[in-house]
Design a protein around this nucleic acid. Structure first.
Lengths: 345, 345
DNA sequence: CCGGGGTTCGTTATCGATAAAATCGACGCT
DNA sequence: AGCGTCGATTTTATCGATAACGAACCCCGG
């Protein structure tokens, strides 16, 4: 029991502990890993030494030896977007349940950075990637050779070759618009439209919008399709200001996410329009913002918790199962429409 | 040039590259680290081999050897709170500028988990911790022996012995309340009050509130001090509902954060009160939510970007400077009040 | 009383990188 | 020609953990 080593100095290793306990480092390792074949006397010596030296296992060393880190990265556009911040929290929670740690990486809607995440530059730091791209195309994705498990999040991409947890983008959008139609609205503006170049939430939600219109026999009016910006609140404000300025009549707005819808809401109210009396508003994502706006915002809840849980589950299975555990899996989370004041009054 | 190794198999190591190039692994390492003393011919062979084998450096191995990871953890309550989500994004950005990577860890206002972060359980995975505790006390903090740099975020703690980047909590709160007083309000309710047991944003903001009242010669009315819950929107709603139910007259509300203020706003509007005509509302944090509520929310902007930048800078200095680069540093970010519709009309 | 089998523990090898020390040549100078 | 010097590379050691293997010791039966 040579209680050496000053306290705040270099952390103790298993070798230090072994010396302190008068055993071999391997015995210490065995103890730490919970092996059974250790005599009570030895066990006690090791326990004491661990205590005296305040041993902490060096995770980096373990990771190197094991070839795994137990971390997965969650690659999203930005934590400034409430939906993704909340998704991140849900994923962190779900991962914790299965013993994984989440490394949050933000890509800022930048194609280069999205590609960088998959290039494995951060190689061996994480075992896999939960990937929610917005800028890159399906082609970009399939062109890459990737050496670790990937689970795609959020959009409906078929045949990407990867596991994929989708929101019910088109179905949810359709439900939102049908809700508006059911309330007697016919001139439904849509905010957040994008050219169909990317991985596609915008495209899919637009499809849902069109489907609902078609089903109700309402003709699509191009002037009601607003886009050109990003998907943050400002874009919603600007879009609705342009629409109002254009003089095009409308009695409802469907925003492709809550931020856009809330921006639109803001623009409407500032222009003196009443919500929902003059214009009903519906969003998508059901973020906390939707719950506390005035009026509260009707929104499509995409099943964030479920998405997180399934995605983490898929990743976990890939990581555990040797090599590839079967072909790519597709999941779609259940959604539901949460009707609130912005459409019901 | 024995182009061996199948593509998607185990990633190539420097040894593989060395064999491919016909040199020693050390030469490869030198090349990768940018050493000068390498003959052009050798250099070319290495470059080719790296290319052929699609080499990626194993960060875990490098970390083990170097004893550092280049990662710092940002420990916050939750990404579900917009202020912290936005702070996280700012910190990630600031860290990237100085070549650090951020690992976001959420502690859920749980004292155990806050302590766990500092216990170094995650030892050697990060080089330091940017720490924004809410549940533990100053005593808890000083009781711990900690083996890595820490920078405290957000509250004004003196003599903690650690670097610390503070918001202007009391000053900001005082400015908010003075703003209300300047508008002729005298019955100013305050939401988010807590017993002064923890590290203290609540306490400090309350102090600012009292200071402003005192300076204006307004007597403090205990019935206007609302607390008992957390700091999320629901708590704001409930607090304001209780206040209204109590019949206590009031003409303004100061929420200790935007979430509380927006919750209060929501409660007021639902109760049929007009904002700001009947009741003016001011929040704290200046999150994006404040910008897009209706009415828009007056709020204290605590200088989030600056806080992030300074905190990362302090951490960077500690990590670079051997051992301890001087005593603990205290910083306080500049704040400013952003007056919007909820107080100006 | 000796040998087989099981427990307990120690020795050596390994993960993939970087650092320090050693080697090998070519070159210049006396 | 002999020798020191410098530059380019290779060899060996190291970070801290886990895995594989082997040695020492015990118990027990024949």
């Amino acid at each position: 029991m040579t209680s050496s080593r000053r306290s705040a100095e270099k952390p103790a290793t298993i070798y230090d502990v072994a010396r302190e306990a008068g055993v071999s480092h391997q015995t210490v390792s065995r103890f730490l890993l919970g092996y059974q074949g250790i005599r009570p006397a030895t066990r006690r010596k090791v326990e004491e030494a661990l205590e005296t030296l305040d041993y902490r296992t060096n995770i980096t060393a373990r990771n190197l030896r094991n070839g795994r880190t137990g971390m997965v990265s969650l690659a999203i556009p930005s934590l400034n977007q409430p939906y993704f911040a909340e998704l991140a929290q849900s994923v962190i929670h779900a991962a914790r349940e299965v013993g994984l740690t989440v490394f949050v990486e933000t890509m800022e809607n930048d194609k280069e950075r999205e590609l960088a995440v998959l290039s494995g530059t951060r190689g061996n730091l994480v075992d896999g990637v939960l990937f929610a791209p917005t800028a890159m195309s399906v082609d970009d994705l399939s062109r890459l050779k990737i050496g670790f498990p990937i689970v795609l999040l959020g959009d409906r991409i078929f045949d990407s070759g990867f596991d994929h947890v989708a929101m019910a983008n088109s179905e949810g959008a359709r439900a939102a618009v049908e809700h508006l139609i059911g309330l007697g609205r016919r001139r439904i503006a849509v905010v957040g439209v994008e050219p169909p170049r990317n991985l596609g939430a915008a495209h899919l939600r637009f499809t849902g919008y069109r489907d609902a219109l078609d089903a109700a026999g309402i003709e699509f009016d191009e002037r009601l399709a607003l886009g050109g910006g990003g998907w943050i609140k400002d874009d919603g404000v600007h879009a609705i200001e342009r629409l109002i300025a254009s003089g095009t009549p409308f009695d409802a707005v469907f925003g492709f996410n809550d931020a856009l819808a809330l921006g639109a809401l803001r623009g409407l109210l500032r222009a003196g329009l009443r919500v929902p009396d003059d214009v009903a508003v519906v969003g998508f994502d059901d973020t906390q913002d939707a719950l506390y706006s005035t009026p509260t915002l009707t929104s499509v809840a995409p099943g964030r918790e479920e998405i997180a849980r399934i995605a983490v589950g898929l990743m976990d299975r890939r990581l555990k199962g040797q090599s590839s555990a079967g072909g790519p899996q597709e999941f779609q989370a259940d959604f539901h429409l949460v009707a609130r004041e912005s459409s019901l009054g």
